[in-house]
Design a binder for these strands. Structure first.
Lengths: 215, 215
DNA sequence: CATAAAAACAGAATTGACTCAATTTTAGAA
DNA sequence: TTCTAAAATTGAGTCAATTCTGTTTTTATG
């Protein structure tokens, strides 16, 4: 079946995304005019709007690809985490942070975040929220894993902790993309500093400090 | 000196803000056309752009008023906090959350947040970041107070903890304004649930559970 | 009082995202 | 092959934020 129509459709999708990604990088999101994207993709303006509801959704498609890569990379850490709570969190969040600027510039991130709060019910807004939730779930999965391994106290509210860790990282990341001069190593260090408080509270104590209510 | 010009200027500022606030509430941010704001404020379009760089900055002025009220209300809690770490945090963050929809609708918050990430260097973007910082500082001040009162362990990294608490609350608040059906009590409960983990980790132990490295 | 410079104002013109009615292309039946 | 309905494409037109340029008002000065 996969007829001509389906092939052309996939091809146009790809051409639009590629043109947009190139122009977003070159000229920035605002600077990339729909007209220019259409011209570069060799389709008309109307066709673009047939494929995407609005300019933001085009960016959204690019963001989704990026975040899905990150989620994929994270799976390895969850499956096989470092045998130390602090390092485990740092490794997973480090992957998120380090991957984040592969395809997306800070300006693109800013736009994507802005659109996702501005239009939470648009296709992209919903997709972005779903991606955030998947990241949260991945952090929760890591914590559950660490609890199963006996590295994190069993009486800790894992889901709440996971959300706390994600929220903090996400907020720090938002501040990071808002300041062009902010650097990734600083971001990681700041996140580590905050997580240290949490780690101290949740590790099963060796001789370090936290008590055990459930020995 | 305070000549005619200065008086007219203040008056026009006020009229523009009042007109915009009314229209934003009635018609929403997008629905409130600049032309309509200008008409209602009895100035021309050009004049509005003489006073504010863009539509977002008008909203920004309104947001600033709101947040400053919240900061003011928070000072009382910092000066005289409940004698229990969990309640102290809950009271302060509760004030923030409960005040938040006095003047601003969720839609206005969404727009304000979006603009502040989209244009972090615009006047409003910078003002919004500054307000976030002030809120963070207020939470840090509360924690410092609780440490001084001997309710929070002295060996806790107070500034990092304050930022963590703020980041978590802020992220939860963002999710809250993104979903129109979300209610304030649920938001408060969710924040409390996450803070419980932190509280357990930082309180000076009575017989409750946390150990003391510095007795 | 004049008057020139500075500041503020007005609203027409511009710009760019998005819409929509007309046209073209495709898939499949006869 | 030919025809038709459905699907997709097109780009000129609409709408609203922002810019621009000439005009008016205010202030400071002789």
């Amino acid at each position: 079946m996969s007829g001509l129509r389906a092939r052309q459709k996939a091809d146009r999708h790809r051409r639009i995304i590629e043109a947009a990604a190139a122009l977003f990088r070159e000229a920035g999101y605002e600077g990339a005019k729909i007209e220019a994207i259409a011209a570069q993709a060799e389709v008309s303006i109307g066709t673009i709007y047939n494929y995407y509801q609005n300019k933001g959704d085009i960016l959204g498609a690019i963001v989704s690809m990026e975040v899905n890569e990150v989620l994929n990379a994270g799976r390895g850490v969850v499956a096989n985490p470092p045998a130390n709570v602090g390092d485990a969190l740092d490794t997973l969040l480090g992957i998120y942070v380090e991957h984040s600027l592969h395809y997306l510039s800070k300006e693109m991130w800013r736009q994507a975040m802005a659109i996702s709060t501005q239009l939470p019910d648009s296709p992209f807004g919903q997709a972005y929220t779903a991606l955030d939730r998947e990241l949260t779930e991945q952090i929760r999965a890591l914590i559950a894993r660490l609890q199963a391994l006996g590295l994190v106290r069993a009486d800790i509210d894992g889901p709440a902790l996971g959300e706390l860790v994600f929220n903090n990282m996400n907020m720090m990341f938002i501040e990071f993309v808002k300041r062009d001069e902010a650097k990734i190593p600083e971001l990681r260090a700041a996140i580590r500093r905050q997580n240290r408080i949490l780690v101290a509270a949740i590790v099963v104590c060796e001789e370090s400090g936290a008590d055990r209510r459930n020995p």
